[in-house]
């Protein structure tokens, strides 16, 4: 089975002020596969994933060299609109961050800001997205209650549903289970495996088991460098680099 390249990072260097956070990163992320990014804190994995839908722009005083392509679009090109890119590549954050609005409004938000007014279309889309995010059965009777009343795990699945409603092609998960209990974590992982049938997925995680369980490819970052990238199976069973081996066997990080 050959999947085509969905996201391509080409010699990425990234700086906060003058400090280099990423050093010459090259990765090909394949369509409809789960790519995990692992590494100790401060290794640049969150920095990297935020580049993929240009969320890095929210932080001032940064600079970047190199190129990132989504399909064939150079996302840092002056003609590329970050708003358009983010409609294609969604993001789920470390801490669940639902809007202080109702469950329904949370999911329909992305549609509304894109100017969709057709009520029945929105309702259908909300239901479909919540079903895909495995949340529908839990919330279908209280769609108009505040999203903040949901539990942490439910909130995170709501955030996933919110992404799905905008029909993004890829979803970036930035440590999505960092603040969740094991049961909620298991649900999210299950969901990721389900979503990969339709979406390209990149997941940053601290949790090695999570990477091993849910990803097809794994990239190991250390101090801003990509140490090793390959099939998850290979990375976890016969890593090429001694640093990778040291990290996955828990000798540091």
């Amino acid at each position: 089975m050959h999947n085509r390249i969905k996201i391509k990072a080409d010699s990425i260097n990234f700086f906060y002020n003058k400090v280099q956070a990423l050093k010459n990163i090259n990765i090909d992320i394949l369509e409809k596969q789960v790519t995990a990014i692992i590494g100790p804190s401060g290794c640049g994995k969150s920095t990297f994933i935020r580049l993929l839908n240009r969320m890095d722009e929210l932080v001032p005083h940064t600079s970047i060299t190199g190129k990132i392509y989504i399909d064939d679009v150079d996302i840092f090109h002056t003609s590329a609109d970050p708003v358009e890119i983010r409609k294609r590549v969604g993001m789920v954050f470390q801490k669940p961050n639902p809007f202080p609005k109702s469950i329904f409004e949370n999911v329909s938000y992305g549609l509304k800001i894109n100017g969709i007014k057709d009520k029945s279309f929105i309702e259908e889309k909300v239901e479909m997205s919540l079903k895909k995010a495995a949340l529908w059965s839990e919330v279908k009777d209280r769609l108009h209650e505040s999203a903040l009343k949901l539990s942490g795990g439910q909130q995170q699945r709501l955030c996933i549903a919110r992404c799905l409603a905008v029909q993004t092609e890829a979803i970036l998960f930035d440590e999505p289970c960092a603040s969740l209990d094991p049961i909620s974590t298991a649900k999210i992982e299950e969901l990721i495996l389900e979503l990969k049938k339709e979406y390209t997925i990149v997941i940053v995680t601290h949790n090695m088991q999570q990477a091993a369980r849910s990803s097809d490819y794994t990239a190991f970052f250390l101090l801003g460098e990509l140490i090793e990238f390959g099939k998850t199976q290979d990375i976890f069973t016969k890593p090429n680099d001694s640093k990778t081996e040291a990290y996955i066997t828990g000798r540091f990080g």
Partner: peptide, 12 residues
């Protein structure tokens, strides 16, 4: 975090 959420959904 909720500003980021909104922007990441393609809001201006």
């Amino acid at each position: 975090s909720i500003r980021e959420a909104s922007l990441s959904l393609g809001a201006t």
